[in-house]
Amino acid sequence: MPLIIDANNAGTVLRFLTAFLAFGDGKWLLTGNERMQKRPVSELVTALQDLGAKISYANNEGFPPLNITSSRFSGGEVYIDAAKSSQFVSALMMIAPVLKKGLIIKLNKKIVSEPYIKMTASLMRLFGIDVDFSNNKIIIPPSVYNIPDYTVESDWSSASYWYEVVALNDASEIKISNLFENSIQGDASVCEVFKSLGVTTTFLPKGEIVIKKTSTTVKELNFDATDCPDLVPSIMASCFGNGVKLNLTGYSHLKYKESDRLNSMISELSKLGCKHSYKGRTLVLEGKIVEKRADFTTYGDHRIAMSLAPLCSKTDSISIDDKDVVLKSYPDFWSDILNLNVLTIS
Protein backbone atom coordinates (compact mmCIF):
# COMPACT_ATOMS: atom_id res chain seq x y z
CA MET A 1 0.00 0.00 0.00
CA PRO A 2 1.31 3.48 -0.81
CA LEU A 3 1.93 6.03 1.90
CA ILE A 4 -0.57 8.89 1.57
CA ILE A 5 0.78 12.44 1.74
CA ASP A 6 -1.80 15.24 1.79
CA ALA A 7 -0.42 18.63 0.72
CA ASN A 8 -3.80 20.33 1.30
CA ASN A 9 -3.71 23.44 -0.93
CA ALA A 10 0.06 23.98 -0.81
CA GLY A 11 1.18 24.03 -4.42
CA THR A 12 4.86 24.47 -3.56
CA VAL A 13 4.77 21.45 -1.26
CA LEU A 14 3.02 19.21 -3.76
CA ARG A 15 5.18 20.17 -6.74
CA PHE A 16 8.48 19.91 -4.90
CA LEU A 17 7.45 16.59 -3.35
CA THR A 18 6.46 15.24 -6.77
CA ALA A 19 10.08 15.47 -7.93
CA PHE A 20 11.57 14.54 -4.56
CA LEU A 21 9.50 11.37 -4.14
CA ALA A 22 9.96 10.31 -7.76
CA PHE A 23 13.65 9.60 -7.12
CA GLY A 24 14.55 7.13 -4.39
CA ASP A 25 12.58 4.35 -2.76
CA GLY A 26 8.95 3.88 -1.78
CA LYS A 27 5.37 4.06 -3.02
CA TRP A 28 3.31 7.19 -2.50
CA LEU A 29 -0.11 8.69 -3.10
CA LEU A 30 0.43 12.45 -3.24
CA THR A 31 -2.83 14.36 -2.93
CA GLY A 32 -4.36 17.65 -1.80
CA ASN A 33 -7.66 19.32 -1.08
CA GLU A 34 -10.42 19.97 -3.62
CA ARG A 35 -8.77 23.13 -4.97
CA MET A 36 -5.33 21.47 -5.17
CA GLN A 37 -6.86 18.70 -7.26
CA LYS A 38 -7.83 21.35 -9.81
CA ARG A 39 -4.36 22.90 -10.03
CA PRO A 40 -2.34 21.56 -12.99
CA VAL A 41 0.79 19.50 -12.56
CA SER A 42 1.03 17.79 -15.95
CA GLU A 43 4.06 19.77 -17.16
CA LEU A 44 6.14 18.56 -14.23
CA VAL A 45 4.82 15.00 -14.36
CA THR A 46 5.51 14.74 -18.09
CA ALA A 47 9.07 15.99 -17.64
CA LEU A 48 9.72 13.48 -14.86
CA GLN A 49 8.17 10.66 -16.89
CA ASP A 50 10.43 11.58 -19.79
CA LEU A 51 13.36 11.10 -17.41
CA GLY A 52 12.10 7.65 -16.41
CA ALA A 53 10.04 8.44 -13.31
CA LYS A 54 7.10 6.16 -12.50
CA ILE A 55 4.16 8.52 -11.96
CA SER A 56 0.50 8.13 -12.89
CA TYR A 57 -2.69 10.07 -12.23
CA ALA A 58 -5.02 8.57 -9.62
CA ASN A 59 -8.09 10.44 -10.88
CA ASN A 60 -8.06 13.16 -13.51
CA GLU A 61 -5.34 13.36 -16.16
CA GLY A 62 -3.02 16.30 -15.49
CA PHE A 63 -4.01 16.88 -11.88
CA PRO A 64 -3.37 15.45 -8.39
CA PRO A 65 -3.68 12.96 -6.78
CA LEU A 66 -0.55 11.27 -8.10
CA ASN A 67 0.57 7.65 -7.77
CA ILE A 68 4.36 7.69 -7.42
CA THR A 69 6.63 4.66 -7.33
CA SER A 70 10.10 5.91 -6.55
CA SER A 71 12.90 4.85 -8.87
CA ARG A 72 16.56 5.60 -9.59
CA PHE A 73 16.39 7.33 -12.96
CA SER A 74 19.71 8.78 -14.07
CA GLY A 75 18.80 12.25 -15.36
CA GLY A 76 19.94 13.74 -18.64
CA GLU A 77 18.19 16.27 -20.88
CA VAL A 78 14.56 17.27 -20.44
CA TYR A 79 12.16 19.93 -21.74
CA ILE A 80 9.55 21.61 -19.55
CA ASP A 81 6.84 24.17 -20.18
CA ALA A 82 7.19 26.92 -17.55
CA ALA A 83 4.25 29.07 -18.69
CA LYS A 84 2.04 28.14 -15.71
CA SER A 85 4.45 27.86 -12.79
CA SER A 86 8.15 28.33 -12.07
CA GLN A 87 7.81 25.69 -9.36
CA PHE A 88 7.89 22.96 -11.99
CA VAL A 89 11.38 24.12 -12.90
CA SER A 90 12.60 24.58 -9.33
CA ALA A 91 11.38 21.08 -8.44
CA LEU A 92 13.53 19.57 -11.19
CA MET A 93 16.51 21.76 -10.36
CA MET A 94 16.68 20.70 -6.74
CA ILE A 95 16.85 16.96 -7.50
CA ALA A 96 19.33 17.42 -10.38
CA PRO A 97 22.56 17.13 -8.32
CA VAL A 98 21.66 13.66 -6.98
CA LEU A 99 21.01 12.25 -10.46
CA LYS A 100 23.84 10.28 -12.04
CA LYS A 101 23.84 12.43 -15.17
CA GLY A 102 22.61 15.62 -13.57
CA LEU A 103 20.10 17.59 -15.64
CA ILE A 104 19.97 19.83 -18.67
CA ILE A 105 16.59 21.58 -18.44
CA LYS A 106 15.33 23.28 -21.58
CA LEU A 107 12.61 25.88 -21.04
CA ASN A 108 10.01 27.25 -23.40
CA LYS A 109 10.22 30.91 -24.37
CA LYS A 110 7.41 32.02 -22.05
CA ILE A 111 8.55 31.75 -18.44
CA VAL A 112 6.48 33.05 -15.54
CA SER A 113 7.90 34.00 -12.13
CA GLU A 114 11.45 33.77 -13.48
CA PRO A 115 12.91 35.48 -10.36
CA TYR A 116 11.89 32.37 -8.39
CA ILE A 117 13.96 30.18 -10.73
CA LYS A 118 16.89 32.54 -10.26
CA MET A 119 16.40 32.41 -6.49
CA THR A 120 16.51 28.60 -6.61
CA ALA A 121 19.73 28.79 -8.63
CA SER A 122 21.29 31.29 -6.19
CA LEU A 123 20.53 29.14 -3.16
CA MET A 124 21.79 25.99 -4.86
CA ARG A 125 25.08 27.74 -5.68
CA LEU A 126 25.33 28.84 -2.06
CA PHE A 127 24.94 25.20 -1.07
CA GLY A 128 27.77 24.06 -3.31
CA ILE A 129 25.99 23.23 -6.57
CA ASP A 130 27.12 24.44 -9.98
CA VAL A 131 24.14 25.95 -11.81
CA ASP A 132 24.34 27.53 -15.26
CA PHE A 133 21.15 29.36 -16.24
CA SER A 134 21.25 31.15 -19.58
CA ASN A 135 19.41 31.25 -22.91
CA ASN A 136 16.39 29.39 -21.48
CA LYS A 137 18.58 26.44 -20.52
CA ILE A 138 19.65 25.27 -17.07
CA ILE A 139 22.64 22.95 -16.71
CA ILE A 140 23.26 21.25 -13.37
CA PRO A 141 25.92 18.51 -13.18
CA PRO A 142 25.85 15.75 -10.53
CA SER A 143 27.20 16.97 -7.22
CA VAL A 144 26.72 16.90 -3.45
CA TYR A 145 24.91 19.53 -1.42
CA ASN A 146 27.04 21.24 1.22
CA ILE A 147 24.69 23.10 3.56
CA PRO A 148 26.33 25.94 5.52
CA ASP A 149 24.76 27.84 8.39
CA TYR A 150 22.21 30.04 6.72
CA THR A 151 19.76 32.67 7.97
CA VAL A 152 16.50 32.69 6.07
CA GLU A 153 15.39 36.18 5.10
CA SER A 154 11.85 37.33 5.85
CA ASP A 155 9.30 37.08 3.06
CA TRP A 156 8.98 40.09 0.75
CA SER A 157 5.62 38.78 -0.50
CA SER A 158 4.23 39.03 3.03
CA ALA A 159 5.82 42.46 3.44
CA SER A 160 3.64 43.68 0.57
CA TYR A 161 0.62 43.81 2.90
CA TRP A 162 2.44 46.27 5.14
CA TYR A 163 3.29 48.35 2.10
CA GLU A 164 -0.42 48.31 1.40
CA VAL A 165 -1.24 49.44 4.95
CA VAL A 166 1.16 52.36 4.60
CA ALA A 167 -0.13 53.25 1.12
CA LEU A 168 -3.69 53.44 2.46
CA ASN A 169 -2.87 55.51 5.55
CA ASP A 170 -1.35 58.97 5.21
CA ALA A 171 1.70 59.80 7.36
CA SER A 172 2.03 56.18 8.45
CA GLU A 173 5.36 54.42 9.06
CA ILE A 174 6.26 50.78 9.73
CA LYS A 175 9.58 49.12 10.53
CA ILE A 176 10.14 45.52 9.37
CA SER A 177 13.04 43.27 10.36
CA ASN A 178 15.16 40.78 8.42
CA LEU A 179 14.72 42.21 4.93
CA PHE A 180 17.77 43.20 2.89
CA GLU A 181 18.50 45.57 0.03
CA ASN A 182 20.42 42.93 -1.93
CA SER A 183 17.68 40.32 -1.55
CA ILE A 184 17.51 37.45 -4.05
CA GLN A 185 13.70 37.41 -3.73
CA GLY A 186 11.92 38.69 -6.81
CA ASP A 187 9.14 40.23 -4.74
CA ALA A 188 11.64 42.70 -3.29
CA SER A 189 10.52 44.73 -6.31
CA VAL A 190 7.59 45.77 -4.10
CA CYS A 191 9.85 48.66 -3.01
CA GLU A 192 9.87 50.13 -6.50
CA VAL A 193 6.22 49.42 -7.27
CA PHE A 194 4.94 51.17 -4.15
CA LYS A 195 7.05 54.27 -4.78
CA SER A 196 4.33 55.15 -7.28
CA LEU A 197 1.79 54.83 -4.48
CA GLY A 198 3.68 57.27 -2.27
CA VAL A 199 5.58 54.75 -0.14
CA THR A 200 9.35 55.06 0.37
CA THR A 201 11.69 52.36 1.66
CA THR A 202 14.72 53.11 3.80
CA PHE A 203 17.20 50.29 4.42
CA LEU A 204 18.81 50.33 7.85
CA PRO A 205 21.77 48.31 9.16
CA LYS A 206 21.24 44.74 10.32
CA GLY A 207 18.43 44.00 7.88
CA GLU A 208 15.74 46.45 8.94
CA ILE A 209 13.62 48.57 6.65
CA VAL A 210 11.37 51.55 7.33
CA ILE A 211 8.47 52.08 4.96
CA LYS A 212 6.74 55.43 5.09
CA LYS A 213 3.97 57.30 3.28
CA THR A 214 5.75 60.45 2.13
CA SER A 215 3.99 61.65 -1.00
CA THR A 216 0.82 61.50 -2.99
CA THR A 217 0.08 58.60 -5.29
CA VAL A 218 0.08 58.58 -9.06
CA LYS A 219 -3.26 58.71 -10.83
CA GLU A 220 -2.53 55.64 -12.94
CA LEU A 221 -0.23 52.62 -12.47
CA ASN A 222 0.95 50.04 -15.00
CA PHE A 223 2.06 46.67 -13.62
CA ASP A 224 3.24 43.52 -15.39
CA ALA A 225 2.61 40.51 -13.12
CA THR A 226 4.65 38.01 -15.16
CA ASP A 227 7.56 37.88 -12.70
CA CYS A 228 5.81 38.75 -9.42
CA PRO A 229 2.27 37.35 -9.34
CA ASP A 230 2.11 37.22 -5.54
CA LEU A 231 2.22 41.03 -5.39
CA VAL A 232 -0.95 41.40 -7.46
CA PRO A 233 -3.56 41.24 -4.64
CA SER A 234 -1.90 43.94 -2.53
CA ILE A 235 -1.33 46.13 -5.59
CA MET A 236 -4.95 45.76 -6.70
CA ALA A 237 -6.28 46.60 -3.24
CA SER A 238 -3.87 49.52 -2.78
CA CYS A 239 -4.72 51.08 -6.13
CA PHE A 240 -8.45 50.74 -5.63
CA GLY A 241 -8.27 51.99 -2.04
CA ASN A 242 -6.49 55.13 -3.23
CA GLY A 243 -8.58 55.66 -6.36
CA VAL A 244 -5.63 54.87 -8.65
CA LYS A 245 -6.37 53.41 -12.07
CA LEU A 246 -4.50 50.11 -12.51
CA ASN A 247 -3.50 48.64 -15.87
CA LEU A 248 -2.50 45.04 -15.21
CA THR A 249 -0.82 42.67 -17.65
CA GLY A 250 0.96 39.31 -17.41
CA TYR A 251 -1.69 37.81 -15.14
CA SER A 252 -2.62 34.57 -16.95
CA HIS A 253 -0.91 32.26 -14.41
CA LEU A 254 -2.88 33.72 -11.48
CA LYS A 255 -5.72 31.31 -12.27
CA TYR A 256 -3.53 28.42 -11.04
CA LYS A 257 -2.96 29.79 -7.53
CA GLU A 258 -4.76 28.82 -4.30
CA SER A 259 -7.79 30.38 -5.93
CA ASP A 260 -8.43 31.86 -9.35
CA ARG A 261 -6.72 34.81 -7.76
CA LEU A 262 -7.40 37.55 -10.30
CA ASN A 263 -11.12 36.86 -10.55
CA SER A 264 -11.33 36.37 -6.79
CA MET A 265 -9.92 39.86 -6.21
CA ILE A 266 -12.13 41.41 -8.89
CA SER A 267 -15.21 39.86 -7.29
CA GLU A 268 -14.36 41.00 -3.77
CA LEU A 269 -13.26 44.54 -4.64
CA SER A 270 -16.48 45.00 -6.60
CA LYS A 271 -18.33 44.76 -3.28
CA LEU A 272 -16.87 48.17 -2.42
CA GLY A 273 -17.58 49.66 -5.84
CA CYS A 274 -14.54 48.68 -7.91
CA LYS A 275 -15.05 48.58 -11.67
CA HIS A 276 -13.05 46.55 -14.17
CA SER A 277 -12.75 46.10 -17.90
CA TYR A 278 -10.40 44.51 -20.40
CA LYS A 279 -8.55 46.28 -23.19
CA GLY A 280 -7.02 43.44 -25.14
CA ARG A 281 -4.88 41.56 -22.63
CA THR A 282 -4.82 44.43 -20.16
CA LEU A 283 -7.08 44.38 -17.12
CA VAL A 284 -8.17 47.90 -16.21
CA LEU A 285 -9.18 48.38 -12.59
CA GLU A 286 -10.64 51.72 -11.54
CA GLY A 287 -13.09 53.49 -9.30
CA LYS A 288 -13.23 54.61 -5.69
CA ILE A 289 -14.68 53.05 -2.57
CA VAL A 290 -18.38 53.88 -2.48
CA GLU A 291 -19.63 51.18 -0.11
CA LYS A 292 -18.60 51.45 3.52
CA ARG A 293 -19.26 47.84 4.53
CA ALA A 294 -18.43 44.54 2.90
CA ASP A 295 -18.46 40.83 3.71
CA PHE A 296 -15.42 39.38 1.98
CA THR A 297 -14.84 35.80 0.84
CA THR A 298 -11.27 34.43 0.82
CA TYR A 299 -11.84 31.43 -1.50
CA GLY A 300 -9.42 29.52 0.73
CA ASP A 301 -6.61 31.83 -0.42
CA HIS A 302 -4.30 33.36 2.19
CA ARG A 303 -3.23 36.23 -0.07
CA ILE A 304 -6.84 37.26 -0.73
CA ALA A 305 -7.48 37.59 3.03
CA MET A 306 -4.30 39.56 3.77
CA SER A 307 -4.76 41.98 0.86
CA LEU A 308 -8.40 42.75 1.69
CA ALA A 309 -7.88 43.29 5.43
CA PRO A 310 -6.10 46.71 5.19
CA LEU A 311 -9.09 48.13 3.31
CA CYS A 312 -10.90 48.40 6.63
CA SER A 313 -8.99 51.65 7.17
CA LYS A 314 -10.98 53.09 4.25
CA THR A 315 -14.37 51.69 5.30
CA ASP A 316 -16.63 51.55 8.33
CA SER A 317 -16.22 47.79 8.68
CA ILE A 318 -15.45 44.63 6.76
CA SER A 319 -15.74 40.95 7.56
CA ILE A 320 -13.56 38.13 6.28
CA ASP A 321 -15.09 34.67 6.12
CA ASP A 322 -12.02 32.55 6.96
CA LYS A 323 -9.45 34.33 9.09
CA ASP A 324 -7.45 31.14 9.65
CA VAL A 325 -6.55 30.89 5.97
CA VAL A 326 -3.52 33.10 6.73
CA LEU A 327 -1.98 30.26 8.75
CA LYS A 328 -0.54 28.88 5.52
CA SER A 329 2.08 31.61 5.14
CA TYR A 330 1.72 34.19 7.91
CA PRO A 331 0.31 32.79 11.18
CA ASP A 332 0.90 36.03 13.11
CA PHE A 333 -0.75 38.30 10.53
CA TRP A 334 -3.77 39.26 12.62
CA SER A 335 -1.79 39.86 15.81
CA ASP A 336 0.72 41.98 13.87
CA ILE A 337 -2.10 44.09 12.46
CA LEU A 338 -3.52 44.66 15.94
CA ASN A 339 -0.10 45.71 17.24
CA LEU A 340 0.06 48.48 14.63
CA ASN A 341 -2.89 50.32 16.21
CA VAL A 342 -3.89 51.35 12.70
CA LEU A 343 -6.75 48.93 12.21
CA THR A 344 -9.36 47.59 14.59
CA ILE A 345 -10.30 43.92 14.44
CA SER A 346 -13.02 42.08 16.30
Rank of each mutant, 00 (worst) to 15 (best):
K118L: 13
I111W: 04
F88P: 02
M93G: 07
V112A: 05
V131T: 12
G128W: 13
A121I: 01
P115Y: 10
I140F: 05
P97T: 12
M119T: 02
P115E: 11
K137H: 12
I139R: 11
P115A: 13
L123Q: 08
S90F: 03
V98M: 15
I105T: 06
A91N: 07
V144N: 15
P97C: 14
K101H: 14
E114T: 07
N135E: 14
S143I: 08
I104P: 01
I95S: 09
K118F: 03
L103K: 12
I95N: 06
F127G: 08
L92T: 07
E114K: 15
M124S: 07
I104T: 15
I140D: 01
V131Q: 10
E114W: 06
A121Q: 01
M119E: 10
S134F: 11
P142Y: 12
I129W: 11
M94W: 00
V144I: 13
T120F: 02
L92G: 08
L99G: 11
A91P: 02
F88K: 07
K101Y: 12
I111A: 05
A121K: 03
M119C: 03
N135P: 00
G102K: 05
M119S: 09
P142H: 10
L103M: 15
L126A: 11
K118S: 10
S122G: 00
I140A: 03
I129Q: 10
S143T: 10
M124I: 06
M124V: 06
L99V: 11
Q87R: 03
P115K: 08
Q87W: 06
G128Q: 09
S122A: 14
